[in-house]
Amino acid sequence: MRKGLFIVIGVWLAIASCQEIKDCELESSTEYAWVYFYEADSVEQYEKTVAFSLVQEESSEYYLFSTLDDDTVAYDTTTYMPLLLNGETHEVKYLFDTDSIQYELTMLYEPHLRIYYDECEPVYSFKLDSVYSPDFDSVVLVNRNVDIAVGTNVEVYF
């Protein structure tokens, strides 16, 4: 009987110990794709420092950077940008304005609304399908997963 009791307690402890510890902070999905800029006319891959006057999504009022908004100063000169994706649509088109030229970058993706844990707010997770631009020299989709562990999603050469 004692042996059986130990077995039962052991099984219960094993089941209890298998309970996954969850924390909303551990959720790894993000809602922005990392875009890095590189020199186009180079054999080696050199990062390019960019200075746009306005970076905004075309169909909404959302902008990542504006020279008129001091809160966005972090991206006045930069080599990379986190471009926010919209869970309500399957496509975002970002416009990168300079004083003379406007560049366009379109990202197509699959949004997925999911609940990570009972105590956390539901989050969108995204998987990029394709990316294209009629203005930059070339754009490359290097990682489809939009995740905190992913360093670069899109490389832009111009």
Binding site: S60, E61, Y62, L84, N86, E88, I115, E121, P122
Partner: peptide, 22 residues
């Protein structure tokens, strides 16, 4: 079914709450 109120959303008016249903 899922219903929740999304706050601080960058899309649309960032100051408003948005009801998300799925």
């Amino acid at each position: 079914q899922l219903r929740y109120t999304r706050t601080g959303d960058a899309w649309g008016d960032g100051n408003q709450e948005r009801l998300v249903t799925a």
